[in-house]
Computed example of a mutant assay.
Amino acid sequence: MSAGPLPDRRERWARPLLTAFLIACAVDLAGVLTDTGIAHLVAKPLLMPLLAGYAAARRGPRLLIAALLLGWVGDVFLLADADLAFLLGMAGFAAGHVCYLCLFGRARSALLPAVLYAAVLVAFLALIRDGLPADLRIPLAGYSLLLTAMAYRAGVLGRYAAAGGALFLLSDGLIATGIADLPQLPAPDFWVMLTYVAAQLLLTLGVLAPDARRSGADPGAYRGPSISI
């Protein structure tokens, strides 16, 4: 009689890694909200490696782990207040979005969200254009197009991944409106980080959902995420 497959030893790390990620999120958000620079400086670089570790412990696909680690590259560069660091950080996130797009496969997406996302992209770029430095207009337009495509395609893995893509778009939109000197919410950096970490977590859970992984990004087979810790 077969005893069945042996458990993967990595799975024992899933719970502590996810817990550590959530703790790091709380520390970072508290640091941003209270303007405690050292808390943000220490916690932010830990976020994506911890989430990537959780994805690896859950035997997630390599493209997901790569997307999260490229997000870490973006996070680290954006800690520096310099134009070159901003562009390098944006390049890191852009590469992560390419990983997500490859991960979502070729499953068909609904037409209505495509129209809505396209309208949001055009309106948003028109809104921020005049407030952006001239040398950032083209890079930000290209990045925004890539991010919008990722957010739209995330829907093939169900509502959680779709929400993650939309939150990622919102988070980066808040950053762009700050660069363009448009009106901001109170504590804007808090909302940027809150929507960002929620986006990455929801995208990760959407990709790790057993039904989504079996289906190869077939939206018809998706039944919701499995948060296995």
Rank of each mutant, 00 (worst) to 15 (best):
Gln200Pro: 04
Pro183Asp: 12
Phe190Cys: 00
Ala3Arg: 11
Ser2Thr: 10
Tyr160Cys: 14
Met48Ser: 10
Ala66Val: 04
Pro45Ser: 12
Ala176Leu: 07
Leu101His: 03
Phe190Thr: 10
Val207Pro: 01
Val122Cys: 09
Leu84Val: 13
Leu201Glu: 02
Val115Lys: 08
Trp13Glu: 13
Ala107Arg: 03
Pro188Trp: 09
Val73Cys: 05
Tyr152Thr: 02
Leu205Glu: 12
Thr19His: 00
Cys25Arg: 02
Leu50Asp: 04
Gly89Trp: 05
Ala24Leu: 06
Arg214Val: 08
Ala119Met: 08
Ala114Lys: 04
Tyr222Leu: 09
Asp81Asn: 13
Gly92Phe: 07
Val120His: 06
Thr19Gly: 03
Leu167Pro: 02
Val122Lys: 13
Met150Lys: 10
Thr204Asn: 05
Ser171Leu: 04
Leu88Lys: 05
Val122Asp: 12
Trp13Lys: 02
Ala80Thr: 11
Leu29Met: 13
Ala14His: 00
Ala149His: 12
Leu29Tyr: 00
Ala94Phe: 12
Gly173Asn: 03
Arg223Lys: 08
Gly216Gln: 07
Ile128Val: 15
Gly155Asn: 07
Gly216Asp: 04
Tyr222Arg: 12
His40Ser: 13
Leu64Cys: 01
Gly216Ser: 09
Leu125Pro: 02
Tyr152Asn: 07
Thr36Phe: 11
Leu84Tyr: 02
Ile138Asp: 06
Ala161Ile: 09
Leu125Ile: 02
Gly155Val: 11
Ala209Trp: 00
Arg9Ala: 13
Leu145Cys: 15
Ala162Thr: 08
Leu121Ala: 13
Asp75Lys: 11
Ile65Lys: 13
Tyr152Gly: 03
Trp191Lys: 00
Pro186Cys: 07
Ala114Met: 10
Ala14Pro: 03
Ile23Ser: 10
Arg106Cys: 11
Asp189Glu: 14
Ala39Met: 14
Arg12Leu: 11
Leu136Ala: 10
Arg10Met: 06
Cys102Pro: 01
Ala52Glu: 07
Ala119Arg: 05
Leu169Tyr: 06
Leu170Val: 12
Asp83Ala: 14
Ala107Trp: 01
Ile229Glu: 09
Thr148Arg: 09
Ile179Arg: 07
Leu185Trp: 14
His40Thr: 15
Gly173Pro: 11
Ala52Gly: 11
Arg106Ser: 12
Ala209Lys: 01
Leu41Ser: 13
Ser226Ile: 03
Ser228Val: 10
Ala118Gly: 11
Ala85Met: 02
Ala119Lys: 07
Leu79Phe: 04
Cys25Trp: 05
Asp135Ala: 14
Phe21Thr: 03
Gly178Glu: 13
Ala95Arg: 01
Leu208Pro: 01
His40Tyr: 14
Leu203Asp: 00
